[in-house]
Structures are given as structure tokens and as C-alpha cells.
């Protein structure tokens, strides 16, 4: 019962951060700020949604009293998917921002740009 409530809370947090990523992606003015929204909020939201799946599997174990095989395999594979997301997301964000800066996109409304100063 308590695990059910925890699952609902985790799902609510995950959905909130995902919709926040979408709003930021549509609202911010340039590539770099959009990367902030699109990379960080989706990573955080997916952590909470996958944790909800894991907690729900633990709930099944507690209520039924047996460790059923498909449920545990599902949990372990969901955790591996989470690790894959956590490892690849910052790396691709780094690659995208570097590509954007080298192809000549300037940060909008920037107060300082050290990288541009170093090149000239």
C-alpha cells in the first residue's frame, strides 16, 4: 500500500520533469539553453519513471511473497536501460554543443563568450 503511494509520487515527478523539458525546448531562445532543458530534465525524469517501475516490481514481490522470474528480469533490464541513458546523454549533449559552436551558432543574449575570444 505504501509502495503504491511511492510509485504514484515517482510517476508524478517523472511526468512533471518530462513536460518541463518539452516546455523549455519550445520556449528557450537558442541552441545551448534548449540543450539545458532537453538533456537534463529528460535524464532526471527518466530516472524517476524507471525507479517507479522498479518499486512496482518490489511491490509485486512483497504482496505475492515469491520472486517471480519475468518480474526480476524486467527490473534488471530496466536498470540497465537507465545506466545506458545516464552514460550516453551527457556525451551526446557535449557533442551537439561543440558541433553547434564550431558551425558558427552564437549564444543568444550572452554576457560573455570566452571560447569566441580565444579563437580570435
Amino acid at each position: 500500500m505504501a509502495l503504491d503511494i511511492i510509485t504514484y509520487i515517482l510517476i508524478a515527478i517523472g511526468c512533471f520533469f518530462n513536460i518541463l523539458a518539452v516546455v523549455g525546448l519550445l520556449r528557450f531562445p537558442d541552441v545551448y539553453t534548449r540543450l539545458h532543458a532537453g538533456t537534463k530534465c529528460t535524464t532526471f525524469g527518466s530516472i524517476f519513471l524507471i525507479l517507479a517501475v522498479v518499486i512496482q516490481s518490489i511491490n509485486v514481490w512483497v504482496t505475492e511473497g515469491i520472486i517471480s522470474s519475468p518480474q526480476s528480469v524486467l527490473t534488471i533490464h530496466a536498470l540497465i536501460a537507465l545506466v545506458a541513458i545516464l552514460l550516453t546523454n551527457p556525451t551526446s549533449a557535449h557533442a551537439m554543443s561543440r558541433a553547434a559552436h564550431r558551425s558558427g551558432v552564437k549564444p543568444a543574449k550572452a554576457v560573455t563568450d570566452d571560447l569566441e575570444k580565444e579563437k580570435t
Binding site: A21, L25, V31, R34, T42, T43, S46, I85, M96, S103
Partner: peptide, 14 residues
């Protein structure tokens, strides 16, 4: 710009 589309695509994949 093209990097904007790429950012959208990466977010969509996650």
C-alpha cells in the same frame, strides 16, 4: 538551424 533540430531529435530519443 540544424543544431536545433538535432537537439529535438536527441530529446525525442530519450
Amino acid at each position: 538551424t540544424h543544431p536545433d533540430r538535432l537537439v529535438g531529435l536527441d530529446t525525442l530519443n530519450t
